[in-house]
Write a protein that binds this DNA or RNA. Sequence first.
DNA 1: TCTGGGGTCCTTAATCTA
DNA 2: TCTGTAGATTAAGGACCC
Length: 396
Amino acid sequence: MATEAPRRWIAHVDLDAFFASCEQRDRPEYRGRPVVVGALPGHRGVVAAASYEARKFGIRSAMPISEAYRRCPDAVYLRPDLDKYRRASRRVFDILGQITPVVEAASIDEAYLDLSGLEKLLGPPAAIGREIKRRIREATGLGASVGIGPNRLIAKLGSEYRKPDGLTVVHPQQVLDFLAPMPVGNLRGLGRQTLKVFDRLGIHTVAQLREFPASLLEDHLGKRAAGSFRRQAFGIASDEVVTGRQRKSISKETTFESDVRDRDTLHDVLQALAADVASTARREGLSGQVVTLKIRFTGFETHTRQHKRPAPTQDERDILRTAWRLFQEGKLPDKAVRLIGVGISGWAQEQPEQPDLFDPPQQHRENRRLLETVDAISERFGKGVLQVGVPRKRNQ
DNA sequence: TCTGGGGTCCTTAATCTA
DNA sequence: TCTGTAGATTAAGGACCC
């Protein structure tokens, strides 16, 4: 019996234990052994990636390295080599681009592909999935898991369904059965905090979520989140694959081996981080107007302070000056610092912002900006140095 | 357990302005 | 000129993801 063709076939490709697999590929003596990439034992930090051999000991990413070491002292512990992983990632994305131009990079080791309309050329979805895996392994020696379904959610859950080296195709008519027995924790955007709420409500599986009264769920999670999880429970999700996404911020941060009180040290570190941010911004041709300072104190108490500068910048001196002012004037607790970081965002528009004389609110802002500049100059050099005519507000 | 680094998105509160 | 208010913008924090 002919079934109706889906509007879309979306694939999600996920490289298995990516960082650890890159290391095992390059060092044959690590193959078959538990490999943990992240902080080194005895230092502050967490697991960034664990090979499948390491996972047998219960080691997971984001686990404190001390805990990982307790579980498996004999594992191979390595610092991440991000340049190596970026090279491998680029190679994989090249291969995906040969399958279809509609590829969205979801992270360094994950991608969404729109396979719609490729069946005539490459065969049914399962055949395309096998071909993707084969090409990745042949070119890079890395294993990948692939999920294919009518939308992004189903594709993503499909790639997680069988790992490593898995392939799962979920046809539109199978979506509800595929989701029903899953733990709700598998849904997108549902983390530890939300899981507690679901636990309290006695919702553990997607099937139970579907049965739960929508209005009651809204009471506990808010309209937006409740709606999102309910839609997911019924397999409703976006099937758009967005190519060429632009990043929205650049940031650099560092955690000290032991907490720091010394202001000079903090300033020096902040300067290095600002230089790093600025260099990335210049390399990518981005200028940001908003500078954000992130501080984590002893006890993991974390604060951010941000400031919108009058003009975009990619200059480390501007970034440092603003960040240091935020540090000094941000009414932050007087405690030793565990982590410090700085970032920029709020990119310059395509064309420099011009005051629009036909847009009173904008004109008002421009006037105010002008007055602020005058004030600042007067403050430094004395009043009367400058006389600036400010256009009067038009009627109303 | 004792918690990295780099991000995105959302909610909420304060402030500004028409 | 004063006042109340609604909407936009900015800022801070938190949840979440890999």
